[in-house]
Simulated assay, not measured.
Amino acid sequence: MTTLLHLDASARAGRSDLQPHGSHTRRLSHRFVQQWLQQRPGDQVSVRDVGLNPPSPVSGAWIHAAFTAPSSRQDWMHKVLAESDALVDEILAADILVLGVPMYNFNVPAQFKSWIDNIVRVGRTFGFDRNRQGEPYWPMLKDANKRAVVLSSRGDYGYGAGQRSAAMNHVEPSTRSALAYIGVSELHSIAIEYDEFGDDRLAASIAAAETEVDTLISRMIRDTR
């Protein structure tokens, strides 16, 4: 059995296939999960909506607690880290991360960045030992064979590799870096573009992205067996 973590980071509550101003990323993430379950109905899905219920941002108290050895933590430290622990536990339980992450001003939404900051945790998802030979940091999830899918959307166009605005795209690169740091190195990405144009190009981009989602699912399911 495979477990999917379905995470949405859009500030928009609805989906663009149901509402005129709904979220494209929610549309794609919903499609991914539903298509997956149609082919593998016995698999499990956990849901996390950081777009509408953002995690608390990292604070000085959080940093103090996270970098204190678990055996030395005081009660308040455990309370400060409780939300982060829950978010990390979801990742540990998941085999595939299905991440709906729109582009906001060339980067990920603040809500999603708070999630990243909470799950990149010393002692839980990455290790650190200043006395370790060579690299003092290491990814703790490296051997867990976890995979990630980033489903994004952009108001403009040309943010793909080698295209006109590729250097301004910090969504997939920053997400890839953070997840690889903890050991999730296999990442697939699909995006809808032309949202601000709202014309036939947007419709074509949506159709292409949905086709890509379906193709990716077939390939990932084949690799899962």
Rank of each mutant, 00 (worst) to 15 (best):
Asp214Glu: 15
Thr215Leu: 14
Pro41Gln: 04
Ala65Val: 10
Tyr157Leu: 01
Ala191Pro: 05
Met103Leu: 00
Ala110Leu: 13
Val47Gly: 00
Met1Gln: 14
Ala180Cys: 14
Gln19Ser: 07
Ala69Gln: 13
Arg124Cys: 07
Ile63Gln: 02
Ile190Lys: 06
Val149Asp: 07
Gly134Tyr: 11
Glu196Tyr: 11
Lys146Cys: 10
Leu187Cys: 12
Ala203Pro: 01
Ile63Arg: 04
Arg26Pro: 13
Ala11Val: 12
Ala93Asn: 12
Gln44Pro: 02
Asp43Val: 03
Trp76Asp: 15
Met168Pro: 00
Val98Trp: 09
Leu216Ile: 08
Leu4Asp: 07
Phe112Gly: 11
Val98Gly: 11
Ala166Thr: 03
Met77Asn: 10
Ala86Leu: 05
Arg40Asn: 07
Pro20Val: 03
Leu97Asp: 05
Asp95Ala: 02
Gly160Phe: 00
Asp143Ala: 12
Asp8Val: 13
His170Trp: 07
Leu7Pro: 05
Val88Cys: 03
His30Asp: 15
Gly158Pro: 04
Asn53Leu: 12
Gln39Ser: 10
Asn169Ala: 12
Ile91Trp: 06
Arg73Pro: 08
Glu186Asp: 14
Trp115Ala: 02
Thr68Tyr: 02
Tyr104Leu: 05
Arg12Thr: 03
Ala167Met: 08
Ser72Arg: 15
Ser218Met: 06
Asp43Ser: 05
Tyr159Asn: 05
Ala167Gly: 09
Val80Asn: 00
Ala148Pro: 13
Asn169Thr: 04
Ala191Leu: 11
Ile206Asp: 02
Ile116Tyr: 00
Ala191Ser: 15
Val58Gly: 03
Ser205Phe: 04
Ser177Ala: 15
Asp200Asn: 01
Pro173Ala: 08
Arg73Ile: 10
Arg130Met: 14
Leu37Asn: 02
Ser177Thr: 14
Gly158Glu: 01
Phe106Ala: 10
Gly42Ala: 09
Gln39Pro: 03
Thr3Trp: 01
Gly60Asp: 06
Ile192Asp: 00
Asp49Ser: 12
Arg176Gln: 15
Leu179Gln: 05
Ile63Asp: 01
Ala9Arg: 04
Asp200Gly: 09
Ala82Val: 07
Gly51Glu: 09
Ser56Trp: 00
Val149Arg: 10
Glu135Ile: 02
Val33Ala: 10
Asp117Gln: 00
Ser84Ile: 02
Phe197Gln: 10
Asp75Arg: 06
Asn105Asp: 12
Ala86Pro: 01
Thr25Val: 15
Asp129Ala: 05
His64Ser: 09
His30Leu: 06
Ser177Arg: 13
Pro139Leu: 12
Gly155Ala: 03
Met140Ile: 11
Leu97Asn: 05
Ala94Phe: 03
Glu90Lys: 08
Gly198Met: 09
Ala69Cys: 05
Ile217Pro: 06
Ser152Met: 03
Val80Trp: 02
Ala204Glu: 13
Asp223His: 10
Ile116Ser: 00
His21Leu: 08
Leu28Thr: 06
Val184Cys: 04
Gln133Leu: 15
Ile91Val: 14
Val88Ser: 06
Gly183Val: 10
Asp223Ser: 11
Leu7Asp: 07
Leu179Val: 08
Lys79Cys: 00
Asp214Cys: 08
Glu210Asp: 14
Asp129Cys: 11
Asp95Ile: 09
Val88Lys: 01
Val149Gly: 03
Asn118Cys: 09
Met103Ala: 12
Leu37Ala: 06
Asn169Leu: 04
Ala203Leu: 04
Val150Cys: 11
Ala191Met: 07
Leu37Ile: 00
Ala208Thr: 14
Tyr104Lys: 07
